[in-house]
């Protein structure tokens, strides 16, 4: 019912929404997304644009559903849910203070919440690290939670790492170091204690070798 209401709301959104080229969105959907879903998805995208939310994740969700042969209603529902997650992420970031969040920040917070981070926990992390890009910190906590660490212990470790100078993607290395301790047979508590003692010295993953870089291809979806 909530999903239907969202869809109806989206269909009723002003068609002249700014910041998104409706024609180009439609052109990307036509031929890939079932015709029955296109109008609703297009309206959801326009509504998101009118609300200053990033729209590309919504287009991608529709393309994903179509590629996975989801029925039209399911595609529209998934796009509406994702718009809701983006809106929730923006609200959370706005409450944490600071300048208006960027599209990238909104998208990364939404992605972390899709991984299962409860919004209050995400808000707690964002508020504790106001000068930190939220994505890596949230994913680091989600990584720890995914391996059975408690919410509180996970947040405490990542915040402690940020306070000793680890920034951005290095916070993911902190979570990885704790998981490696578990894989070596440590308990959760001793893994946390070991990593906390080692901070800020946690290993970084190896950089890609020149051979890997030379072998790498650049995807060209439209080609």
């Amino acid at each position: 019912m909530r999903r239907l209401a969202l869809v109806l709301l989206a269909v009723a959104a002003p068609l002249g929404a700014q910041g998104v080229d409706g024609g180009s969105v439609r052109a990307r959907l036509v031929g890939r997304v079932p015709d029955m879903a296109i109008a609703a998805v297009d309206s959801l995208v326009r509504a998101a644009a009118a609300d200053d939310l990033p729209t590309e994740p919504l287009v991608q969700k529709a393309l994903e559903g179509a590629a996975k042969h989801a029925p039209p209603g399911r595609i529209v529902g998934a796009v509406a849910d994702h718009a809701d997650q983006l809106r929730q992420a923006r609200t959370l970031l706005s409450r944490a203070g600071g300048p208006p969040p960027t599209a990238g920040e909104i998208t990364s917070v939404a992605a972390a919440m899709v991984r299962g981070l409860p919004p209050p926990l995400a808000e707690r992390i964002v508020s504790a690290l106001p000068d930190e890009p939220p994505g890596p910190a949230l994913h680091a906590v989600a990584d720890l939670e995914g391996h059975g660490f408690s919410e509180d212990a996970a947040v405490d470790l990542i915040v402690a790492a940020a306070r000793v100078g680890l920034r951005g993607l290095r916070l993911l290395d902190v979570a990885t170091a704790a998981v490696h301790e578990l894989q070596r047979g440590a308990t959760h508590d001793s893994a946390l204690a070991t990593v906390r003692r080692a901070l800020p010295d946690v290993p970084s993953p190896p950089k890609p070798s020149p051979a890997q870089v030379n072998r790498a291809r650049r995807p060209r979806p439209g080609a």
Partner: peptide, 27 residues
Amino acid sequence: PFTDWRSGVIPLRDDDHDGVWSAVVVL
């Protein structure tokens, strides 16, 4: 999303036919 969810944009390769398929991509 980096292929617009299209197949065929980044095929993996198994040159030695051992069942291990791989691709290295710039993202």
